Simulated scan of single mutants.
Amino acid sequence: MRRLVLSAALLALASAGCSKSEEKPVAPPLDGQLEPIPNPHQPGDFEPLPDPEAQGGSVGRQPRRLTVAQLDAAILNAVGRRWTGPGNDGIDARATSLGRADYALVASENTEPNLVFAKFLEDGARYTCLEQAKVEVTQTDPSLRTLSRTLPGTWGDLRKLTDAQVREFLVYNSTRFWGSPLSGDELTKWVGLFTQAATRVETLTANPKPRHQVLALVCIAMLTDPRFITY
């Protein structure tokens, strides 16, 4: 009996030795080699990005309209003056209609780009841009201007500006208003708008010519553009 037990033990040791000798040695990792990490994002574990075609080419969040406070600050920075009139008809008087909460009947600010907002914004743009343009026509120091800072110190007939000067003016203002410069075919279209306005002003019989209206036209168009009121 003891011989059988001893024989079984010897056989077990022998088989264990054989199995150890058959195991292949594991090579140590090379310097700078990272161990493979399994991908935690398996199909179906996350929501795919929305279709850009369904969101106007955007894959992020939908654009948001400026609040009344943001609009007030943006107009001041872009145009150089607040929307304060005429009379008592500025942004403060129109704040509720533009969407500001009164915390009596309305507890949250409305930031929908509705028709009421567009109508009042156009009125404010006309007043603010015209008033600023009138001041800049008489300002001979370009550094003190906002809309026409790239134009010469003194200027009259805007048709005499070179194409490069007109493009510089439009690129400068589009960057101020939208944070991105006009370029390509769109810039060419804006050059055409500027040229038509400058030509139209010179056909008027008024003396002096209301050349400030050319600056105001560009200002109004950029201020009422969706790129100005959304972010």
Score class of each variant (00 low, 15 high):
Gly60Thr: 06
Pro63Leu: 04
Pro38Asp: 10
Pro86Leu: 02
Val79Leu: 03
Ser7Thr: 14
His41Pro: 14
Glu112His: 10
Leu223Lys: 00
Asp89Pro: 00
Val135Leu: 12
Leu182Met: 07
Arg159Tyr: 04
Glu53Asp: 14
Val116Asn: 09
Tyr172Val: 04
Leu6Gly: 11
Ala93Asp: 13
Phe194Thr: 00
Ile91Cys: 06
Arg61Met: 08
Val137Thr: 10
Leu182Cys: 05
Thr84Ala: 14
Asn110Asp: 09
Glu186Phe: 12
Thr199Lys: 08
Ala14Ile: 12
Pro86Met: 01
Ala216Ile: 02
Leu193Gly: 05
Gly179Ser: 06
Val5Tyr: 14
Leu105Trp: 11
Gly17His: 07
Gln42Ile: 13
Ala69His: 14
Ala12Gln: 06
Asp31Ser: 12
Thr162Glu: 05
Pro113Gly: 07
Leu34His: 11
Asn173Ala: 04
Val135Tyr: 09
Leu105Asp: 14
Gly99Ile: 03
Arg3Thr: 11
Gly179Thr: 04
Gly32Pro: 01
Asp51Trp: 00
Thr140Tyr: 10
Leu66Lys: 08
Leu215Cys: 01
Asn110Ala: 03
His41Gln: 15
Thr230Ile: 06
Gly60Ser: 04
Thr199Gln: 10
Leu215Lys: 02
Val137Phe: 02
Val191His: 12
Glu122Trp: 12
Ile229Asn: 13
Leu13Trp: 15
Arg65Thr: 12
Pro63Gly: 01
Val68Ile: 04
Ser180Met: 05
Asp45Arg: 13
Thr205His: 07
Ala216His: 00
Ala221Ile: 08
Val68Trp: 13
Ile37Gly: 06
Leu98Glu: 05
Pro36Val: 11
Ala221Gln: 13
Asp31Lys: 09
Trp83Tyr: 03
Ala104Lys: 15
Ala164Met: 09
Val68His: 07
Gln196Glu: 14
Tyr103Leu: 15
Pro52Met: 01
Gln132Met: 07
Leu98Val: 02
Leu49Glu: 10
Ala125Gln: 04
Pro208Lys: 06
Phe120Leu: 14
Gly99Phe: 06
Arg81Trp: 03
Gln132Gly: 00
Arg94Thr: 08
Pro25Lys: 15
Leu204Pro: 02
Thr67Lys: 00
Gln33Gly: 08
Pro36Ala: 13
Leu34Glu: 10
Pro152Gln: 06
Pro29Val: 04
Thr230Met: 09
Arg149Thr: 14
Lys189Arg: 14
Phe120Arg: 12
Leu215Asp: 03
Gln132Asn: 04
Asp51Thr: 00
Gln132Glu: 03
Asp185Thr: 14
Ser21Ile: 09
Leu71Lys: 04
Pro43Ile: 00
Val116Met: 07
Glu186Arg: 14
Gly85Trp: 01
Gly99Arg: 02
Arg94Leu: 13
Asn77Pro: 02
Pro29Arg: 02
Pro210Gln: 01
Arg100Met: 09
Asn207Ser: 14
His212Leu: 07
Thr195Met: 03
Arg61Phe: 08
Pro29Asp: 02
Gly156Leu: 06
Pro50Leu: 01
Gln33Tyr: 11
Arg65Val: 13
Pro29Glu: 00
Ala74Tyr: 08
Leu170Phe: 08
Gly124Pro: 03
Ala206Ile: 10
Arg126Ile: 10
Ser148His: 07
Leu144His: 13
Lys20Cys: 15
Val135Ser: 11
Asp185Pro: 13
Val106Phe: 11
Arg176His: 13
Pro210Val: 00
Leu215Ile: 05
Val166Leu: 03
Ile229Gly: 12
Glu112Val: 15
Trp190Glu: 09
